[in-house]
Write a protein that binds this DNA or RNA. Structure first.
Lengths: 104, 104
DNA sequence: ACTTTTGTGGACATAATTTGTCCAAGGATG
DNA sequence: CATCCTTGGACAAATTATGTCCACAAAAGT
């Protein structure tokens, strides 16, 4: 699974790890976090911090910025789902971003 | 200012209140919250809870669902801004919502 | 000019949410 | 069986958000 497929950040990380035939333990240790935590991140039970994102990006030689974007979009997607909000809510949000940027 | 204009939830509430020529105190009391809190909500310094949204909707005879949508879109817009994220992030989020809904 | 009302903002305790770890247990692999 | 792997619960700790109190300045009223 490529990094560009539609999947959560966690799923993408898992795919990277499995493609590299590495265990949670190995990667977690390299990144400096608990095995269980990495597992939770892959299952989207925990949101990685920016620092963790950096470590992951570095480890898998990915662009940190791209992963960050995956993180934010994940968080927004989950918010929409758990609030049971209409997809159109995102359009409204987009307009608000533009509006708020206008008024500096 | 109508409820449909592009503005934050707080600004919309403020507009409603000012159009009705009411003070923060009056409305806050009716709604059962502190004056200062209502002010902060109008300035987006605090996010109203769902209960507060309900009270506001009831008080101004608006659809609760519409206000809820304003709340969620506000939260998303502010997230985009404070993370300095690209607007395209919202598109990614949209695809993820669809993706996550697919896998039930 | 004095009084009252109004909105804002800081400080703060409290509450709610999130994070990260430990540990136990179940599966798969060999 | 023995080992490695992943998952999940429980929980303390950390982080973030909430709501109130209070003081102050500006505006409005008398």
């Amino acid at each position: 699974m490529g990094i560009n497929k539609v999947a959560t950040l966690g799923e993408q990380v898992r795919a990277l790890r499995e493609d590299a035939k590495l265990s949670l333990r190995e990667v977690a240790e390299k990144i400096g976090i608990d095995t269980s935590l990495l597992g939770k991140i892959e299952r989207s039970e925990r949101q990685p911090t920016k620092e963790q994102i950096k470590s992951v990006a570095k480890y898998f030689k990915l662009e940190e910025k791209a992963l960050l974007k995956e993180l934010i979009s994940d968080q927004i997607a989950y918010k929409i789902l758990e609030e049971n909000a209409d997809l159109d809510t995102l359009k409204v949000a987009e307009r608000k971003v533009q509006y708020l940027k206008m008024k500096q």
